[in-house]
Every structure is written in structure tokens, then in C-alpha cells.
Amino acid sequence: MRGEMAVRRFGPYRQTLAWVVAVLAAVGLLAVNVGVYNGMIDFYLTGVLVIAWINIILAVSLNLINGFTGQFSLGHAGFMAVGAYVSGLLTILLNWPFPVVLIIAGLISALIGLFIGLPTLRLRGDYLAIATLGFGEIVRVILLNLKITGGPRGLGGIAPKTTFFSAEIVALITIIIITNIVRSSHGRALVAIREDEMAAEAMGINTTRYKVMAFSIGAAFAGIAGALFAHHQMFIDPRSFTFQRSIEILVIVVLGGLGSITGSIVAAIVLTILPEALRGMAQYRMVVYSLLLIGLMLIRPQGLFGTKELQDFLGYGITKALPKGSARQVASNNGGGDR
């Protein structure tokens, strides 16, 4: 109902509004790039922006698993840790080129995702959440006890290879890849699994294969994000990848909207910058942050964007191939459908 009201309120202007927002966002992105390039944005703020890019990668990739495929995973920090440590060690011990290190970090995380996914994806809902949570904890405990990872002392002296621009490029590639997956028959198979697994199977979709695939791809990008993180912080220890971290990523995804890439991007930016912006409030900062989260969930339980994307508001995307005139109908139907 709320969605319908929104449509009525903005109705004919919605598409125009969406274009204005999109253009402003593009200009903003350009301005930030210029600002970082010629040093107008200081070192500290650039660091925050790098974290924002990393959080975008984490959120968009987790959304593929939790939002589009509907498999509730709480193990994203575990995959991030794998990527961070693998890449950190490769850089320290072998000093391989950064892009190669990123790709290997992603591949190894994907492989572990495959091994974890095969048995655990038979579980549903809460059970899968607990199993993936267990995985995250196992990774943390292993890292805490291995000699090569430095145990609880952590791994230091990783070359600071992550820049604002490298993080940006990787994040944009992630967004493009995952968007293209979601907007294909393969992506529709994932959404079918989320909607009704038994019906999806009855329609000829190999649900096990697709669930494991989504899980591994999600894990790969979490690993890459971890690698960027390691080469940004220059020092990592197991405490960077606790259960708390998985929850933080999940909050971003839920807040942005399970099943909306646009939502994950926006929420990742907002939730990275918000705590920094609230820094002036000192000890009340986390209280305000929590209240904002609770408030948002009460007003929009489906998340900021529900399952919609920027493209839907701009008037193309899913409607692209439809005949003229039906675009508006789709928009109003979507408005009524986002429960």
C-alpha cells in the first residue's frame, strides 16, 4: 500500500526524478574522483571512501546469495578473511602483482565457498545461517592458531597497494558482473529458487547447482574485498573478521533491500559514511546509528529499494524489451507489489 501511495505522489514525475538523481550521482562520483586525484579530499576521507567501495563489493556479493537466491548466509566475513590472508601472504612472501593477487584471493575464496556450499546449502533458512556462522568462526579460530598467519598477533607489513582508484575499479567491475548475472536467465533461475525452490526444480532448474554457484561467486567477491581491505589497512588480524563483520554486511544488504543491487550500493555508502559523520556526537554516536536503523526498518521493512533497481525507475531494464506504453504499467505494478 505504501508503495502505491508513493507512486501516486510522484507518479508522472518519478521517471524524471530518477534521471535527476542518476545524473547527480554520476556528477558526484566524478567530483569525488577529481577531488581524490588532485588531493582536495584529504587522506582520512579518502580512506573512508576506500572502505565504502569495499563495503559495496561485500554488500553486492552478499546480496547475490541472500537477496537474489534467498539463501541466508552469515559467513561473509569468513570468506573476506580468507581473501585478506591469502592476498596478504602472497604480497609479503612473493610480492606478486596486485591484480594477480586479487584474482587468486577471489579464486581461493570461491573454491572454499564451493566446498562449504555443497554440504550446507542442503540446509534451509535458520539452519543454513547457523552453519555459515560456524564456518566464519572456524576460519577465525584457524587464523588465530596458525603460525604463518601470525596467530593472534596478526599479519603486518602488507604493502599499501589498495588505492581509491583500484578499489573503485574493482567495485565497478563487481557491480557490472553481478548485475549481468542477475539480469540473465541464470539470474532468473536464482530468483526462482528464492521464490519457490520446489517449483523452480519442477521447472527444470538444477537448484543445487545454482545455489552453490551463487554461493561461490558471492564468496569470490568477498575474498577480493578482503584482499583490498588487507592492502588498505596494511595490517590484519582475526579480530577484523568476526561474526560482527558478517552482521554489518548483512545490515547493509537488508537495509538497501534484499534483491536490489542499487539498494546495496546506496546502503553501503550511507552506512560507511554515517558513523563517520556522527563522530562529533562522541559517545551517543552508536545510539543514534542504531535508532536510525530501527526507524528505517519500521518505515520500510523491505529495505530502501525493495527489489527494485535504478534502471526500473529510469524506465528501462526489465521493461526494455516490452512494447511502448507498458513501461508505466510495470512501474505502477511494481509499486503495488513491493511488500
Binding site: 532468473r188 530468483v191 526462482a192 519457490d196 520446489m198 521447472m203 527444470g204 510495470v330 505494478n333
Partner: peptide
């Protein structure tokens, strides 16, 4: 009835073509 309830009529049909791609 096990439709993909929150998807459009169009998408419900389109998904069933998946294995033929």
C-alpha cells in the same frame, strides 16, 4: 498452486524456459 508469487506473469513463464537456453 506454486507460482513465483512476487514475480510478474511474464517472468513466471520466462523462467520455465531456463533449461532450454
Amino acid at each position: 498452486i506454486r507460482l513465483f508469487k512476487d514475480l510478474t506473469v511474464f517472468d513466471n513463464i520466462r523462467i520455465a524456459f531456463h533449461y532450454q537456453i
